[in-house]
Simulated scan of single mutants.
Amino acid sequence: MARYLFVATYTAHGIAGLGREGGTVRAEVVRALIENAGGRVEALYFGFGKHDLFVSCEVPDSTITAALGIAARSTGAVKAHVITLLTPEEIDEAAALPVTYQAPGE
Rank of each mutant, 00 (worst) to 15 (best):
A2M: 15
L5P: 04
A8M: 09
A12D: 04
G14A: 01
G14H: 01
L18A: 02
G19L: 00
R20M: 04
E21V: 05
G22L: 08
G23A: 06
T24H: 13
R26G: 00
A27R: 13
R31A: 05
R31N: 10
L33Q: 10
L33C: 08
L33F: 09
I34S: 10
E35H: 15
N36I: 13
N36V: 14
A37R: 09
R40W: 11
Y45N: 09
F46V: 14
F46H: 06
G47R: 08
G49T: 10
K50V: 12
D52M: 02
L53N: 02
L53P: 15
V55G: 05
S56W: 12
S56R: 12
C57V: 10
C57W: 02
V59W: 03
D61T: 07
S62H: 01
A71S: 05
A71C: 08
A72F: 01
A72V: 14
S74H: 05
S74I: 06
T75N: 05
A80E: 03
A80H: 01
I83Y: 15
L86S: 15
E90Q: 13
A96C: 12
P98F: 00
V99I: 14
V99F: 13
T100D: 14
T100G: 14
Y101E: 11
Y101N: 11
A103I: 03
E106D: 07
